[in-house]
Simulated assay, not measured.
Amino acid sequence: MEKFEALIGEMEEYGRSNHVPIINEKGMPVLLEMVRQKKPHRVLEIGTAIGYSALLIANNSADDVEIDTLELSQERADIARAYIDRSAYKDRIRIHIGDAGENILKLSGKYDFVFIDAAKGQYPDYFRKVYPLLTENAMVLADNVLFRGYVRGAAECPRRFKTIVKRLREYISLVSENNEFETVIREDGDGLAVSQRLPKENNR
């Protein structure tokens, strides 16, 4: 297998050259910090793109980690599979192609870590559908929740983004007001919502 760092570097270059939306360099340390803290065994990723974050998660999780990752685009899934197959994690990462909202409902078992980085307007729907699949101590991390500063900033939101911004505000309210979770909004990058499920006796 190729050296992991070289493979990741190649993927970063591909992402830059082809304008593929992989997690940005300011958001990535937060993702890795949370994964290293959690050391998850079973991960669900919504939004594979080229497999960049799936590989980073795999490399920082428990030794027995298994990852299900959902991708709408067959083309991107094929690129992701080609990269993943060059890594030591090729047998640990499964790519499910198609609409994420539909594919979540086909999954079984429980996940202790969920990373959401797909269609921003679907975040509330994703969370509601993922909820029954969460372990009692699960962590859910959603990227881009501050969306270019429009979600919490004072700047006027362009009309084309109004629905996305509305849904991201709904997502933040959904996870922040759920007393089963403690949610922190990290302002790194484009904003990440980190929602840690609390032990039942601590639910507020």
Rank of each mutant, 00 (worst) to 15 (best):
E2C: 01
E2G: 00
E2H: 04
F4M: 15
A6T: 13
I8D: 07
I8N: 07
E10C: 00
M11F: 03
E12G: 10
E12Q: 14
E13A: 14
G15Y: 06
S17T: 03
N18H: 15
H19C: 03
E25F: 04
K26W: 13
P29S: 03
L31H: 09
M34Y: 01
V35A: 08
R36P: 04
K39I: 03
L44F: 06
E45G: 09
E45P: 07
T48H: 05
T48Y: 06
T48R: 04
Y52T: 10
S53G: 07
A54Q: 11
L55F: 10
L56D: 01
I57H: 05
N59W: 01
S61N: 08
S61Q: 08
D63M: 02
I67H: 10
L70R: 03
E71T: 07
E71S: 07
L72Y: 15
L72K: 12
Q74R: 12
E75V: 13
A77W: 05
I79C: 06
A80W: 09
A80D: 12
A80M: 10
I84V: 13
S87Y: 09
R92N: 14
R92A: 14
I95H: 05
I95K: 04
H96A: 05
I97E: 13
I97R: 08
E102A: 14
E102D: 15
L105D: 12
K106T: 15
S108G: 15
G109I: 06
D112C: 09
F113I: 11
F113R: 07
I116T: 02
A119G: 06
D125G: 09
R128K: 14
R128G: 01
R128Y: 00
V130E: 07
Y131T: 12
L133F: 08
E136P: 00
N137S: 14
A142P: 02
D143N: 11
D143G: 05
G149H: 10
G149Y: 11
G149I: 01
E156H: 05
E156D: 11
C157T: 15
P158A: 09
R159S: 12
I164D: 08
I164S: 04
R167S: 12
R167I: 03
R167D: 04
R169H: 04
E170W: 00
Y171G: 05
N178H: 04
N178F: 00
N178A: 09
E180W: 09
R186H: 13
E187W: 00
D188Q: 15
D190F: 02
S195Y: 06
L198K: 15
L198C: 05
N202Y: 12
N202L: 15
N203K: 10
